[in-house]
Amino acid sequence: MAYSDKVLDHYENPRNVGALDKNDPHVGTGMVGAPACGDVMKLQIRVGDDGVIEDAKFKTYGCGSAIASSSLVTEWLKGKTLDQAMEIKNSAIAEELALPPVKIHCSVLAEDAIKAAIADLKQKSGGGVDIEPAKQEA
């Protein structure tokens, strides 16, 4: 399948690959996986005292579209508040990367990773903020 130029760019030069200290109370870690293709994605965000995301890192094992989706969202996340981050939709990721229909689930995975990272962060800070987990855990 032909990848779009933007997917190729993120795939060949992924932004923000790496890890943040998952024990840092300012760091939220989201891990998600797509059973159908076996892709695994870890997304981490670090939030400053002002509630703004100051850093984001990812590690993804999967196809080019999954890597590009996670790379792209780490760029988008920086500078956003958690509420703004919650509003990132998979459709926007898919549109930006021109993902074909069979790769839409890669963008879903990235959206779910953001939600999982934020849920982890809120749970850590015990902020009492009700936040819906990305998906029900089986």
């Binding site: 891990m31 998600v32 996986g33 797509a34 059973p35 159908a36 695994v40 870890k42 590690k59 094992y61 689930h105 879903v108 995975l109 779910d112 990773a113 999982a116 987990p133 990305a134 998906k135 029900q136 855990e137 089986a138």
Partner: peptide, 22 residues
């Protein structure tokens, strides 16, 4: 429905193990 296409919330220790294996 086994939700293989839609359910991305696997247990954390399972995903961690996946990462380590990869």
């Amino acid at each position: 429905d086994t939700q293989e296409e839609t359910n991305t919330a696997m247990p954390a220790d399972f995903l961690m193990q996946q990462m380590e294996w990869r």
